[in-house]
Design a protein around this nucleic acid. Structure first.
Lengths: 204, 204
DNA sequence: GGATTAACTTAACATTGTTAAGTAAGAGAG
DNA sequence: CTCTCTTACTTAACAATGTTAAGTTAATCC
């Protein structure tokens, strides 16, 4: 009786269809401009069907972002697996992070720039499987490599990691929200920030 | 006939009452969790009255933030008017910026972390009277001072300014949105970011 | 004293996320 | 085959949102 399995496959399929439709709409229009009804229209189901597969709009967004961020993870993996100077790899990783954010502004916004829900879920951040946290862990590992090679001024890996994260998040976030601002060339700015940060933490 | 003027004064007064009520609610609950009806309740007027004084909710928020940010301006002015090494003043200014953001998270979010409305208003950012832009100009001035004193590695004031802004915005934004994250001590992190940035742009 | 204007309110609209109740088709058991 | 139960979905509705149009009431002007 493969019937049950076929059913399950079909169920999984619809779930994926919802995710795809939602992702595309979120990407093109931004989370808050997409209603559940619009997503439902796109997949030609009734709005309430979505609730059979996802608890609410927030969970749907979370899943969509998780998919996107796993792409960043493989991207970062490729960069960090290459040999070379730890500081160079660190720079390349940081730049990749920023560029990813800018290429996926709505998903970046959703994972890193959204207000904390009132009943904050600390678990979401300490949970290492969380989409964004995995990316941050990459940064941590880079910093450990650099520390082992004695490349840094400070010796606290956590402080260095968080400092670098704050820095790259800053450019990413500003370039996303302040599109109209008279920035210097994007690439120039990104490189400037990353260079400044790495110069700042590196041993003199 | 002072009647007309009294009327005008009363009108201004109600406007200010709305601003105050809105500000308090925005501060305690956050922009998106405050409805026009709640604001109206607080001042004991009907919801639609607000629209006689403000075009829409966004404009109301904008005015509220403007008020708040002018406090940052006077704060920064005090710091920058003190004598001393340009880099030291720069550091103090940057730290003040971050602390202000963290102490006014909702207003900071509203001015610097909100998605750009679809029909972007470039004018809002180039306009030097805009609340946030005035603060950024302070940073620019600091950088000019430092450049004049030959303190920086790079020579482009705009690149340096934007780089520093990105950096401090990063900590501010992350500390605001990721309250639950296992940060190292806030003050330690803030100081680390500012030190790193200034070390990064300073002449070796 | 009648018309005009100003300040404010009531009622309503369209849209949002979400839930409760219903329906129809198919699986499983006898 | 038939009765029942489950699965997968839909229809209808709710409460809340920002915002507008249409009053209403009181003071002002001529």
């Amino acid at each position: 009786m493969g019937v049950k399995e076929r059913k399950l496959r079909e169920k999984k399929f619809l779930r994926q269809e919802i995710l795809d439709a939602a992702s595309e709409l979120f990407v093109t229009e931004g989370y808050e401009n997409v209603s559940m009804r619009r997503i439902a229209d796109k997949i030609e189901y009734s709005p309430t069907t979505i609730y059979l597969y996802f608890k609410d709009k927030a969970e749907l967004l979370e899943q969509v972002c998780q998919e996107t961020f796993s792409r960043l993870i493989v991207h970062l993996t490729r960069i960090l697996d290459q040999p070379g100077d730890p500081l160079d790899r660190l720079k390349r990783g940081l730049i990749a992070y920023v560029k990813f954010g800018i290429e996926n502004p709505h998903h970046y916004r959703a994972t890193f720039m959204m207000p904390i829900p009132p009943g904050f879920d600390r678990e979401k951040y300490t949970n290492p499987d969380a989409p964004g946290m995995q990316a941050f862990d990459f940064l941590r590992r880079c910093v450990f490599d650099g520390l082992a090679a004695g490349k840094f001024q400070d010796t606290d890996a956590e402080i260095i990691s968080q400092t670098l994260w704050a820095g790259v998040h800053g450019v990413t976030a500003l370039l996303i929200t302040h599109e109209g601002f008279p920035w210097v060339d994007h690439d120039v700015l990104i490189e400037s920030v990353v260079d400044t940060l790495v110069r700042g933490v590196a041993k003199a």
